[in-house]
Design a protein around this nucleic acid. Sequence first.
DNA 1: CTTTAGCACTCTTTGCTTCTGAGTGCTAAT
DNA 2: ATTAGCACTCAGAAGCAAAGAGTGCTAAAG
Lengths: 350, 350
Amino acid sequence: MELTERKKKILRAIVENYIQTAEPVGSKVLSAMPGMDCSSATIRNEMADLTQMGLLEQPHTSAGRIPSPAGYRLYVDELMQDYRLSVDETQSLNQAMELKLQEVDKVISQVSKMVSKMTNLPAMAMTAAANAPTVKRFDLIMAGEGSFILVIMTSGDVVKNRLIKLPLTCTEQDLKLLAAVLNASCTDLTPDSFTPELLERVSRSAGPAGALVPLVLDYATHVLSQQAKSEVYVSGQMKLLGQPEYRDIDKAQEVLSSLDGETLSNLPATMADIAGTQILVGPENIAKELKDTSVVMTRFDIGDGMQGLIGVVGPTRMDYAQVTARLSYFAENLGRMFAKPELPPSQGEE
Amino acid sequence: MELTERKKKILRAIVENYIQTAEPVGSKVLSAMPGMDCSSATIRNEMADLTQMGLLEQPHTSAGRIPSPAGYRLYVDELMQDYRLSVDETQSLNQAMELKLQEVDKVISQVSKMVSKMTNLPAMAMTAAANAPTVKRFDLIMAGEGSFILVIMTSGDVVKNRLIKLPLTCTEQDLKLLAAVLNASCTDLTPDSFTPELLERVSRSAGPAGALVPLVLDYATHVLSQQAKSEVYVSGQMKLLGQPEYRDIDKAQEVLSSLDGETLSNLPATMADIAGTQILVGPENIAKELKDTSVVMTRFDIGDGMQGLIGVVGPTRMDYAQVTARLSYFAENLGRMFAKPELPPSQGEE
DNA sequence: CTTTAGCACTCTTTGCTTCTGAGTGCTAAT
DNA sequence: ATTAGCACTCAGAAGCAAAGAGTGCTAAAG
């Protein structure tokens, strides 16, 4: 059967109406719509065709039609019209984006909160390093009271530090020597290269402070692995309850349970594949628990080979156009923000 | 009317049964309980008395009794028996507590997740500084590529850093001088003492690197204010939905909405007053939205004048004994953990 | 004087039936 | 090809009776 223009028009109308009302759409309301120049009977015939083509379904015989997943797919791919952000919206988005100078982690968690707020749906945000991070530079600062500060700068220009108590007495000179040795031998290495042999070699050549080497490399390993690990933040889970399809708590819980870290942590794997915004409708989804929901996500680049992902989860019947527009805007600006940071030049983090 | 031993016994039985079943308790089941050596009729009489005394209530005439808020209060204060953690429980708590060396912030957020998991209820965790933090020490490290790392150690021995691009050329000597000046004039001061005059005086005496002073103090202010601000983490909101009293989504949402930062941020104010574990039953609660719920919270000390608070939110009918025991155990160990950190001596954070 | 058995009464819950209305599919006329 | 008309279906609301749980009170028993 052919998908005529009129059929498309009807499908679009059904999808959009259903998105708004969450109620099955009947032939009568459709025929009453402006621009629909035919009777309800004609529309019924068309709807029967669309149902046969697998684009619509009927909850039960005496109800109107709702879009099937395939129907949504078609709508999203071909029928959906771009949603234009209003001035008000861009303004409040901009306002929300005024993130203070903060650690990447915090920015990400805040972003997930903001996205959730803007879309009124549960949102997730995460980052992942594209290539394994390494240490770019070690610094050891004497801090009095028998302790020193270990400062590590990673390949992503992220700086982390830690106050460590000295297990032995040690002069500033000793620390300087150790730092020099570390910078010579342990930079640009992934954690798995920190072999016991390396460790011993370094400690020997580092003089009195050599005993600190394990502590230092331990922390380095910790920092690097944290850096590599993408942390996932999920916010606004409760927003899901506002959606009529999740008035049933069990359903909501099922969906939300799959958002608890586990499932999402293997998302970054797919991340590289995503170009721009991706919309997963119902059964196409990541996890089987999400088969009745949709996920919309957008990638953005942080620079330094890092990528980020923001997305929302909602009923299949969500306003894709609007959500997509907002996510893209967000992602774009985040990318820009990370690319050329605020003027009093700063980069990396604490 | 007098509160006889038997009345107490009955009240306790009712509370505990109701905690388990979430159903009103009738005279018949009570009389059938082991240790109840009287008929259902007698119990009915006693229950009528307890109701009159305001310790019990009846959802409707033909239902059993449930404890009133006052009844809970009495139970919590006098009747509740300590819940002893089983070996299994302490073990899994210990296991959960094996927090990796991490920032205070992250520990706190993780703690809230753990508490929620252990109690199966929404949990919150937060910290607050008892006295205004100050900078204890500045360090400036040349980092090549025309940038330097600013390292700040605060009064709480927390170390924060930030990579800053140099807006001008500047030698390592210049930075050293600047650090010396800053350490001489700007330590032990709260951010509000960073007046324009101070700023100017310092920049003048700091030689070539004087132009960096605003950047440095800006960041210091940021760090200190972040330190002073207590961040609240709430986890496991969805857990509330597992409780039968919140099957009604609107109710759940109402309660959870009051957990979104705002309400909780003025909790720290009361924090000082809390000794050990505090149980707020229904109407005694912090926010009016919580009038049908209970909050249990425990304070712990982090050292350096910092305090933390962990707590859970749940139905008035929650297992106070168990929750209290778990919270206390948690708090105790957290306190210990912060007091004398892991052996390879470390303290403070990144 | 306290306890208990017995009983009438109340009120929620549950299951059932009926009714209503929205929406369909089909047929016949335009 | 479109449309009007009509019989048919089915979910949801409304109404109702029966069941069951639990109470309060009274009167007898310890």
